[in-house]
């Protein structure tokens, strides 16, 4: 391996940029969620902190960071501390392979353009699936270690939910993988640049992916683990302060990750919308727009739908999504052959 300065400095800079952007977009996302849902519900949302409440997320973050950290008496301390970390680390690690654009020279700073993903793994998608499968331990152990009944129920629910929805989620992206003939995130986007976006030939896969992504991130209408009306707050009922902020951050980071995957796999990544290529909008803006659209779907669903019940959720996961995803793979494989 060639360990020169250039191989160290550029990835480090990229990592810093990506993590800053991700954390900032989490802040923006919390603000957007409250504002968008507020407008859907004929109210104003946060208005007090800063103009139009723009500084609200910062105020929230400051509040969470300075809050008292409460540990339940009978909690298992080690596991209680470990759980938020286990939730957030995989969520952030998945951003390693997300290509936010094609290539960049950092505004002419570099001689040779470098990829806009931190790392262009040739098994990018598989990597994301593998890493994100670790994320559920944060929820499971967090619920268990609080030593309280509502969190335990919430943790069991979410673990069962995530385990069962990971299967159709994976199956749904196998169709596009078959068509692109690669596991690399970059390769999938490049495959779409030649033909149409995979959302058209793989429409069913896209629908399944959207539904499963919502379930995977525990968002409404699949937000059973943290169903406020039933389980108070689910697995993080007992958490407060920084640790709660970690769970919160992990949830939003996960939302951004699944949106990024959807953008890359189905919506053509950084490619411009067909017919609008003459606009000369930078690739990263296209990427952000598509991701924003997908994130908007999350909020839209939350404002529209009631919540499923636990057994119904499992039933549609296993009895509907998985068979349809399998049929989709079968048909795709036949067509690709």
């Amino acid at each position: 391996m060639d360990f020169t300065m250039i191989n160290i400095v550029i990835p480090t800079v990229k990592i810093l940029i990506v993590f800053t952007v991700v954390l900032l977009s989490v802040l923006v996302m919390t603000y957007a969620e409250r504002k968008v849902i507020a407008f859907m519900q004929v109210r104003l949302g946060p208005m007090r902190v800063g103009p139009w409440g723009l500084l609200q997320p910062i105020a929230d973050a400051l509040k969470l960071f300075s809050k008292e950290d409460i540990i339940p008496t009978m909690a298992d301390k080690w596991v209680y501390y470990l759980a938020p970390t286990l939730a957030i680390v995989p969520a952030l690690l998945t951003f390693l392979v997300v290509p936010f654009g094609d290539q960049t020279t950092f505004f002419g700073l570099l001689k040779h353009p470098t990829s806009m993903a931190i790392s262009d793994l040739n098994i990018g998608l598989l990597y994301i699936l593998a890493i994100s499968s670790v994320g559920i331990y944060g929820i499971l152990l967090g619920g268990w270690s609080s030593n309280s009944k509502y969190p335990l129920l919430g943790a069991l629910r979410s673990a069962a939910q995530i385990v069962s929805y990971e299967v159709p989620l994976t199956l749904a992206i196998i169709g596009p993988i078959l068509m692109a003939n690669t596991l690399s995130m970059k390769g999938i986007v490049e495959a779409q640049s030649k033909g149409m976006w995979f959302v058209i030939p793989q429409f069913f896969a896209f629908l399944i992916y959207t539904a499963c992504a919502v379930a995977e991130t525990n968002r409404a209408p699949y937000d059973l683990p943290e169903a406020e009306q039933e389980l108070v707050a689910g697995f993080h009922t007992e958490y407060s302060g920084m640790k709660f902020a970690f769970f919160y951050l992990a949830e939003y980071a996960n939302m951004i990750v699944v949106s990024a995957i959807a953008t890359v796999v189905f919506l053509g990544g950084w490619l411009p919308v067909p017919g609008l290529a003459f606009l000369h909008i930078p690739a990263i803006i296209w990427f952000a727009l598509k991701m924003g659209f997908f994130l908007f779907i999350f909020l839209w669903l939350r404002a529209t739908y009631p919540r499923y019940r636990y057994d119904q959720l499992m039933a549609i996961g296993w009895k509907f999504f998985i068979p349809v995803a399998l049929i989709n793979i079968f048909v795709t494989a036949l067509l690709v052959l």
Partner: peptide, 25 residues
């Protein structure tokens, strides 16, 4: 062996240990 590494994460971390945790609970 990056493929084996990813499979290790998927199979063990994503599957087997979840089974263990469920069983423990």
């Amino acid at each position: 062996a990056e493929f084996i590494a990813v499979v290790q994460l998927l199979v063990y971390a994503g599957g087997i240990i979840v089974l263990f945790v469920f069983m423990l609970l």
